[in-house]
Design a protein around this nucleic acid. Structure first.
Lengths: 223, 223, 223, 223
DNA sequence: CTCTAAACGAGACGGTACGTCTAGTCTTTCA
DNA sequence: TGAAAGACTAGACGTACCGTCTCGTTTAGAG
């Protein structure tokens, strides 16, 4: 069941190859083709419902009704409410993990963290992401998908930057990269989920500065 | 619905005073007293169900059945599934926010972070906490309760330590305390919720060391 | 499943005994008692729907909606659409199998057949009965219930009359009672189900006369 | 929907005339001709499903699947499940309404009734017929088709015999032919539908004998 | 030997009802 | 008066079949 429905979600997905260049021709698809209209309507309906009704307004029933699509169609392509949201999230999150060239380490990291913070704070993606993490607590399928398609790529981008800096001697060799990455990004998720503190504009910069530089006073007064 | 409830959850909760000794007698409660047996059975049933059936095995129906208690009784004392789990979580989490005297700042912080990590990794509390954070995404009541009774006290303990260290000149004055606290604790929640990395034994120490000392090489490149 | 739902349908059902006089006290039933209002509303809704929408307007969904009762309640007491109609049929068919005293055999039989014909032609019972016989083709449960509670009692009443007449020497000893009973009643069902001929007023009398007297001319061809 | 369909069902149906010899040439049918294979497979699938799955295993979906035919093809030629069964019934019921020459009235009638009883008891036709009568309760189209193509021809055959006998003076002039025919055939349908009594081998003979001769004792003791 | 028209298979689609489940509430009797 | 039992309303669940549709694929006769 977990394997179903996971086709072409998000921008990363590979479009169906109509004809493989080599051998093993896939053959033209028979039957009525899947309705792109239905697919898009479902994804949009899910996001809309989440935004203006909260997470548990997003029922399969409501999605189908709002998308003017039959329930059976929804179930045909997505095995659960959470899978719809997963694809909805990815399809409207064109955010990239790339970082501009020619920036310092500090600038690069800040840019990545700030991008996440903006996504979470300023777009529909925030609510979707919170809901998905919640769903991941009871659905290993969702957890795995989130990990593979969202968490891991972003962590790897940052981890790459950090490791390169270690190579350059810019960072200490004893660095625990995984922990460091979490110290940069986890606070954003934490505030999304618990809401104990707002996601301030300068949060990204602060997190990077404090982690890289440490919390100790800059300079022993003199001497 | 969100406004209701929140009665005596947690082990901290004050049991109903049957008779105030002094003046202002509340009046002896009439009728059959609340069954302590029922209360305990419900809390245990909720935790048990979570552990061996996953988060969405914990339905009010199942709780009542397992606790051999009528559904009405459950609803009488707890307004929702999540509130039961909230109280269940607190009642079995005797963890304290106090920190032993006479420890260095680094040791104190490590001790607090490690305590959280152990709770999350080694006890039922981990699953309960994950579930509660998930529930908080759709129930502001839960979110508020979690914040007030769990997140805030722990954050304040750590924040207090940090602020004292700033006073002592041990930490930089420009410190963003809230962000720093998150950089210590958020990674633990993050790993609980996403599971992308294990909660290693030395994680707490690593987090504290990296944050306090920063990631730059110990020795200035020069000379 | 067949055994469920079949409680107290029709007037024949035994009311629940609240307290057995002797030993083995049943004890008062715990919990909220069954809603008589709901029961009646469901039965009426089913009949109404059948009458003004045809047989396949009678869905469980529609019954529940029309009776202003939740679907779960309907399913709790009746295992299928057909069982609802069964009880609806019996509850509104107070027709008796008894026959007035002091009538001749011919009059008695005519009275029974005519009563059936009137029921079928002039009341809601006709449509209900047709539907039930149809349902019996795919549901052995319904078939058995119809046989035991409708067909058999009526057949036995008539069979009794016929057998008594044989005893009295009024009818031929070689009589196949079962076949004779069918020759009196089956035509009514047949016309109900196929509708090839109307159920005329004098049908009952005709059937009885033709069967008892035979079809041969009154006067032996001789003379 | 009721108006559609009814094309060439049964073996009695007239095959499409490929080319009218005289004027007004219809024109040869263009395009791919109807697949006889598909037609036969559908009819057989319907009967098979009915036999080994009961009446409500016969869904359009199942018919198409079992016949290895697309649903659209089934719908193209038959407007409903019941119409498929109607044609299936007629196509496998080669039973005739003719009666051998040179038989007595009693023998002729017995032969007709017995033929029906055998069909009902010993062949697939029985179940098909029961199902069709059931379907007729909610589908006037089916009811009409059954009446016109099954019930009426058979009734007319018997009615003809009876009327001729009246002409010959063999039967009483006051005879209600329609009622008499029902008294011969209805019991067979009745037992098919309700199953309260088996269809014994000698049933046909009994029905005819009892109706023609009446139930009264053969001879007034003497005098 | 193409062209064209109809029938065909596959299968996606919008619907409707199914029968089940859980949430909460309400109405009893028992303790 | 609280607790237990259990019936109730409300509504989402996921499935099945309905009847329609849109494709690409035959399979003929017509040109």
């Amino acid at each position: 069941m977990a394997a179903r429905g996971m086709r072409e979600e998000g921008g990363v997905g590979v479009e169906r190859v109509t004809r493989a260049p080599g051998a093993g021709t896939v053959g033209a698809p028979r039957g009525r083709p899947r309705s792109e209209r239905a697919r898009a309507a479902v994804l949009e309906a899910a996001a809309d419902l989440l935004v203006d009704g909260g997470m548990d307004a997003v029922t399969m029933e409501a999605i189908a009704a709002r998308a003017k699509v039959s329930k059976a169609t929804v179930y045909k392509w997505w095995p659960s409410r959470a899978h719809v949201m997963l694809e909805s999230f990815f399809s409207r999150t064109r955010e990239t993990t790339e970082v501009p060239e020619g920036l310092s380490l500090e600038e690069s990291l800040t840019s990545l963290v700030a991008a996440l913070a903006r996504l979470v704070r300023d777009t529909t993606g925030g609510a979707l992401l919170g809901d998905l993490i919640a769903a991941a607590q009871s659905d290993p399928d969702i957890r795995a998908a989130l990990d593979e398609r969202w968490v891991r790529p972003r962590r790897q981008a940052s981890a790459g930057l950090l490791r390169a800096a270690v190579e350059r001697g810019e960072l200490t060799p004893g660095l625990d990269v995984a922990a460091a990455v979490d110290q940069l990004f986890a606070p954003v998720y934490y505030r999304l989920l618990l809401g104990h503190e707002p996601l301030a504009d300068d949060l990204a910069a602060t997190l990077v500065r404090q982690l890289l530089g440490g919390l100790r006073p800059p300079r022993p007064p003199r001497s």
